Simulated scan of single mutants.
Amino acid sequence: MPLPTSRVVMIGKPGCHLCEEARSVIERVVAETGDSFEEVTLDSDPAFARYAEEIPVTFVDGRQHDYWRVDEGRLRAALGR
């Protein structure tokens, strides 16, 4: 399964506190920018297992953007391009 086509994609897992923090930042930013966001879990595709030690992993426009934490300013800058 390839990554979803949303502008911002996060790979995470249930019960992950870093994922909850990242989701909060991403949702706040995309609510302001109007960009699309989708979250997938590690178990939705075996190929995502390679990110298990880095979750949450975020992608912007299909390219890996951050892992472990989402920097709000850096995400805004990436979406502003």
Rank of each mutant, 00 (worst) to 15 (best):
residue 1 M to H: 12
residue 2 P to K: 15
residue 3 L to Y: 12
residue 4 P to S: 07
residue 5 T to L: 11
residue 6 S to H: 08
residue 7 R to D: 11
residue 7 R to M: 04
residue 8 V to L: 05
residue 8 V to T: 02
residue 10 M to Y: 00
residue 10 M to F: 13
residue 11 I to Y: 12
residue 11 I to M: 06
residue 12 G to V: 01
residue 13 K to R: 14
residue 14 P to Y: 11
residue 14 P to A: 14
residue 15 G to V: 07
residue 15 G to L: 08
residue 15 G to Y: 09
residue 16 C to T: 02
residue 18 L to Q: 10
residue 19 C to L: 09
residue 20 E to P: 03
residue 20 E to T: 03
residue 22 A to Y: 05
residue 22 A to E: 01
residue 23 R to Q: 13
residue 23 R to S: 12
residue 23 R to V: 00
residue 24 S to I: 00
residue 24 S to D: 14
residue 25 V to I: 08
residue 26 I to T: 11
residue 26 I to L: 10
residue 26 I to H: 11
residue 26 I to P: 10
residue 27 E to G: 06
residue 27 E to L: 15
residue 28 R to W: 10
residue 29 V to R: 07
residue 30 V to F: 07
residue 31 A to P: 00
residue 32 E to T: 11
residue 32 E to R: 14
residue 32 E to Q: 15
residue 33 T to R: 14
residue 34 G to I: 06
residue 34 G to M: 07
residue 34 G to S: 06
residue 35 D to K: 15
residue 35 D to C: 13
residue 37 F to N: 05
residue 37 F to P: 09
residue 38 E to W: 08
residue 38 E to H: 14
residue 39 E to W: 13
residue 39 E to R: 11
residue 40 V to L: 06
residue 42 L to E: 11
residue 43 D to T: 10
residue 45 D to E: 13
residue 45 D to K: 03
residue 46 P to A: 12
residue 46 P to H: 08
residue 46 P to I: 05
residue 46 P to V: 06
residue 47 A to N: 14
residue 47 A to Y: 02
residue 47 A to P: 04
residue 49 A to P: 04
residue 49 A to E: 13
residue 50 R to V: 14
residue 51 Y to M: 03
residue 51 Y to T: 05
residue 51 Y to F: 15
residue 52 A to F: 01
residue 53 E to Y: 06
residue 54 E to M: 11
residue 54 E to F: 11
residue 55 I to H: 00
residue 55 I to S: 00
residue 55 I to E: 03
residue 55 I to T: 00
residue 55 I to M: 05
residue 56 P to I: 03
residue 57 V to Q: 05
residue 58 T to P: 04
residue 58 T to N: 06
residue 58 T to Q: 09
residue 60 V to T: 03
residue 60 V to E: 07
residue 61 D to P: 01
residue 62 G to K: 03
residue 66 D to S: 15
residue 66 D to I: 02
residue 66 D to W: 00
residue 66 D to V: 00
residue 66 D to N: 06
residue 66 D to H: 12
residue 66 D to A: 13
residue 67 Y to R: 12
residue 67 Y to F: 15
residue 67 Y to D: 06
residue 68 W to F: 13
residue 69 R to Q: 10
residue 70 V to C: 04
residue 70 V to H: 05
residue 72 E to N: 09
residue 72 E to S: 09
residue 72 E to H: 09
residue 72 E to A: 13
residue 73 G to Y: 00
residue 73 G to M: 02
residue 73 G to C: 05
residue 74 R to P: 03
residue 75 L to A: 09
residue 76 R to D: 00
residue 77 A to F: 00
residue 77 A to V: 01
residue 77 A to C: 04
residue 77 A to Q: 13
residue 78 A to Y: 06
residue 79 L to A: 08
residue 80 G to L: 15
residue 81 R to S: 14
